[in-house]
Nucleic acid binder design. Structure first.
Lengths: 203, 203
DNA sequence: CGATGCCCTTAACCTAGCGTAAGAAATACC
DNA sequence: GGTATTTCTTACGCTAGGTTAAGGGCATCG
């Protein structure tokens, strides 16, 4: 087992499965620009005020992206586990200081590409412009859905939807984190979960 | 004054100002694929359940994109006026039934492109892949900001931010629509506005 | 293997923002 | 120009979800 090759292999597989397939040359150009990085549990990939210099592809472990509001409360916006991306796109693309934190919830390994290396990739290989267009489109769609729910759906139903939409996150994350994602307190989530068992005829 | 030419000219200007400049050929390819359409006040560009077949560039007038929740309440997600896009990206890209409505708040004129014509454009001209990647990136950034605010900022401050971030929308839209965008009732917005005048030392 | 955090739960009280109703002002449209 | 719709405002009771406090389970690390 070659541990240095394995992460890049995961990245190759990712593009092979979900996007316009890459030629050998494109694969080479892609993988050459990524750097592996290990992150401890509780460590930050990004902190508020920093510019997000890298787009990170998660190879192992688990992250959350969150804001801290004026009263000090944390709000999770996004999670990422294996084969998902974790980047503050706003900061990354605009090269502006970020308003969010990215923290590892478990010991993690990521593959990172610098902003200029990515632009470079776009300029030289048409297909990356396209694949990353699609990638952002998907992110946009998820985000719109999230906004829609957070605006127009009561907490209990948001929790239900979370369980069915993101079972791989739900299985893995502590309820504290899920509550923050749903925009409620852990106490209130606890109540919802109890009610769900008590009155199962709700479905 | 040639009224058929003017709208396309607006579209050309739009790409000239904000994106990678187009060659004459690209401009031609672009404008050839757009169709002008006039929409009456209160008319729908898209209704829930329909697939959003067109990406629409607003030449004149004003639109809102909104959902209706289970209890029948409407929630505005987005506005668009001249030189902005109004499309349900989720439905448009995935070619799935939409969950939202797009309604003209004023008599309007749009330029529309079909989904397959746009893909066509992507395949033949590298630059559109890129320009629309950037376009979606910007949309993503706005959306994330919106989500961030709706999650972590109290209504009064969201209103303030709305006024400074989107003065061109604020000037033009009835408070009812703005309230719905902010996620509050018109009655509550009314209260906020009164308080703002009464205690101006808040800033 | 003991202890120091986490994480989850329950319960009693509290408040921001909503629902409703209803009058006044402003706009749209014929 | 006049009638019909929206739109804006005020007021008051109400509810979803937050806050605070406190106890118990279970990991994890020395």
């Amino acid at each position: 087992m070659d541990t240095t090759l394995a992460p890049l292999e995961a990245l190759r597989q990712y593009f092979k499965q979900d996007y316009f397939p890459l030629t050998g040359e494109e694969e080479e150009a892609l993988t050459r620009r990524f750097t592996e990085r290990k992150v401890k549990r509780r460590a930050f990939l990004l902190q508020e005020g920093e510019v997000c210099r890298y787009a990170s592809f998660v190879v192992a472990g688990c992250f959350r992206l969150y804001t801290v509001d004026k009263s000090g409360k944390e709000h999770n916006l996004l999670f990422a586990v294996e084969n998902e991306w974790m980047t503050d796109l706003a900061s990354f693309y605009a090269e502006q200081p970020s308003r969010v934190y990215i923290e590892a919830l478990e010991p993690a390994t990521v593959l990172q590409i610098r902003h200029d290396d990515l632009l470079d990739l776009f300029t030289h290989y048409h297909k990356f412009d396209r694949n990353f267009r699609i990638l952002v489109e998907r992110g946009y769609i998820d985000l719109q859905d999230r906004l829609l729910q957070s605006i127009s759906t009561p907490a209990e139903e948001r929790y239900q939807n979370f369980l069915t939409q993101y079972p791989h996150w739900a299985r893995r994350l502590p309820n504290t984190q899920i509550a923050s994602y749903l925009g409620i307190t852990p106490e209130f989530l606890s109540k919802i979960r109890k009610d769900r068992v008590t009155k199962p005829g709700k479905a």
